[in-house]
């Protein structure tokens, strides 16, 4: 959710029980402005909160003018002092995929993971237990990246692609109509498109190149990984990800108010097929 309209957004997203205490709100409103200034961001998003056992991580993201450009991700434990996270790499993801369970809340905490490695000692091959240390900060980076790639949402039309390539915020976006707001096809993944290139020409015939340049949500796997609801007597549409429980996207139809927030444990729900 946008840092500028944080209070309204928090109010809108509150249907899922996710909120911030008044002191957190106040400190975020203050510190995110400073983040915007110091890191030279065009736009700062309050990304969400990852619940740890001892402390919570508050995550913010700084966007440059091109909305799809790589983002700066920052975390904070007290909502005032922000530290920049390194960009996520594939290597990190592989490394941290072995870690399960909850975050502790201590960024320097090290998970120990023992794995068997084959060691060639002359002609003999024997297996040796190697203890791998994984820092929680690395895991944090990788989880945020995974969530961003999997379930960050933007309504259709909120962004547009300029003829030169970069993607900008559409200032003429007036919100989705009520009928569109109920369809998953009106929502896009807020990341570089992956599936779009695989579409046939006929499927692309209906697409508007300046608006439909992202992947839509409706083809997500498994089918039914989103819960879409109208709340407050249809004045608000809320999308909840079932794959990453804790991610809530809200949009008030016919207004510009939209955004997503993640408040959860940072664990993927791999039981989804059993639960539907």
């Amino acid at each position: 959710m946008d840092a500028e309209s944080l209070l309204l957004s928090l109010e809108l997203a509150s249907g899922s029980g996710q909120g911030l205490s008044p002191d957190r709100r106040a400190s975020l409103l203050t510190s995110l402005m400073l983040v915007k200034r110091d890191y030279r961001c065009d736009r700062v998003l309050f990304w969400g909160r990852i619940l740890g056992l001892v402390a919570d991580y508050y995550i913010a993201q700084g966007l440059s003018e091109d909305q799809l450009a790589p983002r700066k991700t920052l975390y904070s434990l007290n909502c005032m002092e922000w530290s920049l996270l390194p960009p996520a790499t594939d290597e990190m993801m592989v490394q941290t995929s072995v870690v399960k369970g909850r975050f502790t809340g201590d960024p320097s905490h090290e998970y120990e993971h023992t794995e068997l490695q084959k060691v060639n000692d002359g002609e003999k091959v024997f297996e040796e237990e190697v203890v791998v240390q994984i820092k929680e900060e690395t895991r944090l980076v990788s989880i945020i990246d995974q969530i961003d790639k999997a379930v960050s949402v933007i309504p259709r039309g909120a962004l547009f692609k300029t003829p030169f390539g970069p993607v900008h915020v559409n200032r003429t976006f007036e919100g989705l109509s009520l009928s569109q707001a109920k369809k998953l096809s009106s929502y896009f993944h807020f990341r570089e498109p992956v599936e779009l290139k695989n579409k046939t020409l006929l499927e692309k015939a209906d697409l508007d190149p300046s608006l439909d340049f992202l992947d839509s949500l409706e083809h997500d796997i498994p089918k039914g990984s989103w819960s879409i609801q109208m709340e407050r007597g249809n004045a608000l549409v809320v999308l909840r990800s079932l794959l990453w429980p804790g991610l809530t996207f809200f949009h008030a139809p016919r207004t510009k108010n939209c955004g997503y927030i993640y408040m959860g444990t940072g664990e993927k729900n791999i039981d989804l097929p059993f639960m539907l």
Partner: peptide, 12 residues
């Protein structure tokens, strides 16, 4: 609960 950072919105 709002102090604790949980709960629904005020109007709800």
């Amino acid at each position: 609960f709002e102090q604790a950072g949980v709960g629904l919105g005020t109007d709800e």
